[in-house]
Amino acid sequence: MESILNFISSNQQIIYIVILMIFVGIEVIGHVPSVLHTPLMSGANAIHGVVIIGAIIVMGKAETDNYLALGLGFLAVILGTLNVVGGFVVTDRMLEMFKKKKAS
């Protein structure tokens, strides 16, 4: 019990961020029309690709002769980049069509 309380008080900043972000996340997409569900899902998919930052940190901290850590990090960087780049490009392709429609 005490360890939980300690955990909360020593991480209170993060906990505040988490709670506020939950509300922001819900609030921000609250009124999305159903037409945009798929692109929005895809865009959100690209945003959670921010996990790539963790992969870069793992990679950059690894000792140069620790091949297991390097291998794990390297794979993580590739996968993370795929997620980010692929995600944004696919979303852009979907939305490109919406834009064209609007203009005509």
Partner: peptide
Amino acid sequence: LYDNKAMLTGGILVGAAGTLL
């Protein structure tokens, strides 16, 4: 884990928005 605010906000934001979506 890394006390990284960008990952934290991005992740939670998608977690919440994704659930609502």
